[in-house]
């Protein structure tokens, strides 16, 4: 499998972080950065990563299915909306944001819009408890989110398309 040049560069940078005999350590980072660059993890990618770190594809799948940010075989949307409802957010309006997002987007937990643009996930604590309720859209944090702010953020996603 040929990778885009930028990702190829990232691959060598990541693999270079570990002693050659332990390059298996690169497995999860390679998958996560690939998912970000390619939008999804495919069986071809699994094979490619297996080849790069010197393990069987099945071993890659074994690891892959453990981590909640790695989506396989079903990818998430281009914009992945993650709403925290864990305890600090629960106390400050997280569950209300979650319901609002479900209704607005017509999506449930880990569902993707038909056009593949937006997906939704109820997530565990994202490390923003003192600025709750908090959400993440892809890797961007949004703090002290109100229903109005959430509406606005979701509107923007549609326009970004």
């Amino acid at each position: 499998m040929t990778l885009p040049q930028e990702l190829e560069q990232k691959f060598s940078e990541i693999i270079g972080k570990y002693p050659p005999e332990y390059k298996k350590s690169a497995l999860v980072p390679l998958l996560l950065y690939s998912q970000d660059a390619l939008g999804k993890i495919t069986p071809e990618l699994v094979n490619e990563v297996a080849r790069r770190v010197g393990v069987f594809p099945l071993q890659v799948e074994e690891v892959l299915t453990y981590y909640s940010m790695l989506h396989f075989p079903k990818p998430m949307g281009k914009y992945h909306v993650q709403i925290c409802t864990n305890v600090s957010c629960q106390l400050t309006g997280g569950p209300e944001l979650w319901e609002l997002a479900c209704k607005r987007l017509g999506l449930g937990h880990k569902e993707v819009s038909a056009d593949g643009l937006i997906s939704l996930e109820e997530v565990e604590c994202i490390g923003a408890c003192s600025w709750a309720p908090a959400i993440q859209i892809n890797y961007d944090f949004h703090h002290f989110v109100t229903p109005e702010k959430l509406d606005e953020l979701l509107d923007n996603l549609r326009q970004l398309q």
């Binding site: 972080k17 570990y18 332990y22 298996k24 350590s25 690169a26 497995l27 999860v28 980072p29 998958l31 996560l32 950065y33 770190v53 074994e62 690891v63 453990y66 981590y67 909640s68 940010m69 790695l70 565990e124």
Partner: peptide, 27 residues
């Protein structure tokens, strides 16, 4: 010094699971 990214797993904060994860395995 190198950074290493996790990929979503609370259990990987537990020290021995973290080490497993850092070695490229399930946490």
């Amino acid at each position: 010094v190198f950074t290493h990214t996790g990929a979503g797993a609370y259990e990987c904060g537990e020290e021995s699971a973290l080490l497993e994860s850092l070695e490229g395995k399930r946490g």
